[in-house]
Design a protein around this nucleic acid. Structure first.
Length: 867
RNA sequence: GCGCCUGUAGCUCAGUCGGUUAGAGCGCCACGCUUACACCGUGGAUGUCGGGGGUUCGAGUCCCUCCGGGCGCACCA
């Protein structure tokens, strides 16, 4: 036990206790002699190391920490690891800007490379100003920067007081993670769950990579309808009679047109099905076909199918078995060579004017050409329509045909879909309604999960391809590494049976250059952290996990993909509970985001207000509920700070009374307080078990204020100046209550409660036993009157009110006070009359039974102040 | 288009199974240096529970409907 300071304060507690916890290993996961039932395991979200932390992180990670601390105090061995999601695009972008470089895989490695600058100013560096570096140099810079970023993150998490076992941390780009992701992938391939396909793919032209359905978002964009003349081949071919009018928002894709399509029931176009038309400008003959996805009420009711303008084009192209006539390159520009189908001189000339242009410029050029040829009908009508974007991108996605790796996700497998939905029902969601989002997502899956990315800093896809006699890769026969060989980098490692000299030569092999989507690694966090295929004993202790905490925005990505991988690998749910935190909204109720400039740095908040205060704010919001936060006026944080300070001061005060005679609680008021507290303990425990940490906090907090404002005031005279058993009773009750409060509040205010605990007990409050109501009823007796404190409190309010009304100090003596109460209450009140008289400085206190509804002061006579 | 959440005091939010007079904190007003706490304490005022309809002895709570706010999924010529 340590001495109580003269002036307890919050400042410095983070550093003081953070150090002690680290030294004592307070949060260390102890597996010695553990069994699965004695463990509480948490599948912690690995934050994106290269991103900046914002208040939203503090919010949701605090939610999880309160649960971790509660479970630890319940006697569970808590497995609470921390991972860093350091691979992927965010890191690449940050490295580009931080060091002023860009990856060019064609360049050779430079030993001892020094980047052009370091630190940057946070602004993005233009691509033209970035120095091209080799892939290996680029990855080295990624590694260097993420290690630094992760250190800062860890410092912040430690200051916030997350009770993470830091010896269990992992990086998604670390060797063990690489090995586990590749191992899982290889097994997916072996079981037929991972495959490659050449197919139209959503493509980000800025990052030049394919993206998956889960990473899409719709954004409203300006667009325009253009009405084009298509010429019927059975007419003269000249503009005019018999032309078909087609509305399109993508006129630049006209050279990629492969057909026109209308609904089979559309009588206007039924006569044309089976005939052909010629495209404007390019004079390509295309069929008129029928498909049920064509909407008669859209545009002119007949659409042009291009390869590829949108995902519907892809469906039509596939289902109607149309030819491919791609014009868009990976860079988002029209390719230099016109499609072969464009044969006419005029058509090839027209295309030559588009070649090399961006989509935007090509659109303008086509419009001009169409206007010149008279094949554009009427006005161009501008509209606003949703367009698919990569969530991290800022240019619309295009669709290009590429070879990619996929993992089956039930889009084409009804039985798997049923299993995934069943798992969704089996999982305990907090709050419950979040399950719907999962179901929406699973039911809306339109294609398998595209996991290959044409990027650099990620887990390499661990395959090689044999090269045939002509030096062409045989993609259908990928060479997989042996499990014992993992992790591998196919760019530098050599497959079994080959030598490095055979790389890239006919009859030899080539390595896959793509890396995995970051979610392909993150979807394995239960495996990565839990020692899957590395530490079977650990895995058996923690898996399936008890809790997956996460934000609502990544249900379709992280939650879904983790559940999927677990189903594929283990055939079962990876966790029992999912705790979904809400958003942080700024005062205008808009989601906080960097671009809006309303992000506050958590480090500054913790520094200014103290960690306990910030945690209080976070913990007072329920799971799944958005919380408003105004950095200019952080009300909840101030309230939390007040609570933490109050805890320190109340403890100091209560522990200051002479405890020599402590032992039994005999006074009715003391017993009442303990009985009330016992109820709070029961309810708070129930709330925590139901993943309602906010209610547990509210219960503890509100009773704590009653304890301070009423009980402590009522008994301080007795505890300080009283004698014998009545004094001992008060002191015993105060100490018992304090011990309970420190523990009830420990999950929320780990610093203040630890400080207070250190004044009265050995060890850490965070490894102490979660309070039991029985501790209190043992002291207070089973028949204690929990209501008494409230009755006395009501009388006290009456006395105080009278003094306030008289504009007198609370210490003003009272000559006479008459308290009236209902018959039954009056008798009980008399049991605490002495305490009430003492705090009110009442010379003569009369308690009368009367026909009133509630306790009230009927008459009061204050002693006159000096005349 | 399908669906989920949400609307309670000026603000942020509780309100359990339908049950007495709807709560808390902040803010506001007034008072008070009272054995810890001025980063404090005491007291007070404050409501069309979004609107309408229904069920019920009784509705903030259940049902229907309309309106507002937020979000998910789908659509994308």
């Amino acid at each position: 036990m340590s001495a109580i300071p003269d002036k307890p304060q919050l400042e410095g507690l983070e550093a003081k206790w953070g150090k002690v916890w680290e030294e004592q290993g307070t949060y260390r996961f102890d597996r010695e002699g553990a069994d699965r039932d004695g463990v509480y395991s948490i599948d912690t979200p690995p934050p994106t190391a290269s991103g900046s932390l914002h208040v939203g992180h503090v919010f949701s990670y605090t939610h999880t920490d309160t649960v971790a601390r509660y479970q630890r105090m319940r006697g569970k061995r808590v497995f609470y690891p921390m991972g860093w999601d350091d691979n992927g695009l965010p890191t690449e972008r940050r490295v580009q800007n931080y060091y002023g470089v860009r990856c060019d895989p064609s360049l050779p490695y430079v030993e001892g490379f020094v980047p052009p600058h370091e630190g940057g100013d946070g602004k993005s560096v233009k691509a033209a100003d970035q120095q091209p570096v080799s892939r290996r140099n680029f990855i080295e810079l990624c590694e260097r920067l993420t290690v630094e970023d992760e250190k800062q993150f860890e410092d912040l998490w430690r200051t916030l007081g997350l009770s993470v076992d830091w010896s269990q941390s992992y990086r998604t780009i670390g060797d063990e993670s690489l090995r586990a992701s590749q191992l899982a992938f290889v097994r997916n391939v072996q079981r037929g769950e991972a495959y490659q396909a050449q197919a139209p793919t959503l493509w980000d032209v800025t990052f030049r990579t394919a993206v998956a359905q889960a990473e899409l978002e719709d954004r409203d964009q300006p667009g325009a309808y253009h009405t084009l003349h298509f010429h019927r081949t059975d007419s003269s071919g000249a503009v005019g009679e018999g032309d078909l009018l087609i509305d399109t928002t993508r006129p630049e894709l006209l050279p990629a047109c492969v057909a026109l399509v209308a609904h089979p029931d559309d009588e206007r176009y039924q006569p044309l099905f089976g005939t052909t038309v010629r495209t404007p400008l390019f004079d390509v003959e295309v069929p008129v076909v029928a498909h049920h996805l064509a909407q008669p009420d859209k545009g002119t009711g007949i659409a042009m199918i291009c390869t590829f303008g949108d995902v519907t084009d892809v469906v039509w192209w596939r289902e109607l078995q149309l030819p491919s006539r791609s014009v868009l390159g990976f860079d988002g520009r029209l390719v230099s060579e016109a499609p072969e189908a464009i044969e006419s001189e005029a058509g090839r000339e027209a295309y030559a004017q588009l070649a090399g242009k961006t989509v935007f410029s090509a659109k303008q050029a086509v419009v001009e050409l169409l206007q010149a040829s008279g094949e554009l009908s009427g006005e161009i009508r501008t509209i606003t329509h949703p367009v698919k974007f990569f969530e991290k991108g800022d240019r619309p996605l295009e669709i290009v045909s590429t070879r990619q790796w996929y993992i089956t996700n039930s889009a084409h497998d009804e039985a798997l879909r049923e299993r995934l939905l069943a798992h969704g029902r089996e999982l305990d969601w907090h709050p419950e309604f979040m399950r719907v989002r999962y179901e929406n997502w699973v039911e809306g899956l339109s294609g398998d999960w595209l996991i290959s990315r044409q990027r650099f800093f990620g887990v390499p896809i661990p395959v090689w391809y044999p090269l045939d006699a002509d030096g062409n890769p045989v993609y259908d026969e990928p060479i997989l590494p042996a499990e014992s060989q993992l992790p591998v980098d196919p760019s530098s490692d050599v497959p079994a049976g080959y030598t490095e000299a055979q790389r890239g030569v006919a009859g030899g092999f080539q390595g896959e250059v793509d890396v995995m989507d970051t979610w392909a690694t993150s979807s394995l966090t239960p495996q990565l952290a839990g020692g899957w295929e590395r530490d079977p004993e650990l895995f058996g202790l923690v898996y399936p996990y008890d809790l997956r905490p996460q934000g609502q925005d990544i249900i379709r990505t992280w939650l879904f993909s983790t559940l999927l991988r677990s189903e594929l690998e283990e055939g079962r749910l990876p966790w029992r509970h999912a705790g979904i935190s809400g958003w942080i909204l700024d005062p205008d109720r808009k989601k906080m985001s960097k671009s809006k400039g309303n992000v506050v740095t958590p480090a500054g908040m913790l520094e200014q207000h103290g960690s306990d205060a910030v945690r209080y704010w976070a913990a007072s919001a329920k799971l799944g509920t958005d919380a408003a936060f105004d950095p200019q006026n952080p009300t909840q944080i101030k309230i939390g700070r007040r609570l933490a300070i109050k805890l320190l001061n109340a403890a100091k005060f209560a522990l200051g009374f002479d405890a020599a005679g402590a032992g039994l609680v005999t006074e009715p008021l003391d017993r009442s307080m303990l009985a009330g507290l016992a109820r709070v303990v029961e309810e708070a425990t129930r709330a925590f078990d139901a993943y309602d940490h906010a209610r547990a906090l509210e219960l503890a907090e509100s009773f704590f204020w009653t304890f301070c404002d009423d009980y402590l005031e009522l008994v301080k005279e007795r505890a300080h100046g009283g004698e014998g058993q009545s004094q001992a009773s008060a002191v015993t009750a105060l100490r018992a209550a304090l011990s309970i409060f420190a523990r009830l509040l420990a999950p929320f205010l780990p610093y203040a409660s630890e400080e207070v605990w250190s004044w009265m007990a050995e060890g850490s409050v965070h490894t102490a036993d979660w309070p039991l109501a029985s501790e209190l009823t043992a002291l207070a007796g089973d028949d204690a009157d929990a209501e008494l404190l409230g009755l006395v409190g009501a009388a006290l309010v009456g006395v105080r009110g009278a003094k306030t009304a008289a504009k007198a100090s609370q210490k003003t003596p009272v000559e006479l006070a008459v308290v009236q109460a209902p018959e039954a209450s009056a008798e009980r009140l008399r049991l605490a009359a002495a305490d009430l008289a003492a705090v009110g400085r009442i010379a003569e206190l009369r308690i009368e039974a009367a026909p009133v509804d509630a306790v009230a002061v009927a008459e009061i006579r204050l002693e006159q102040a000096e005349a």
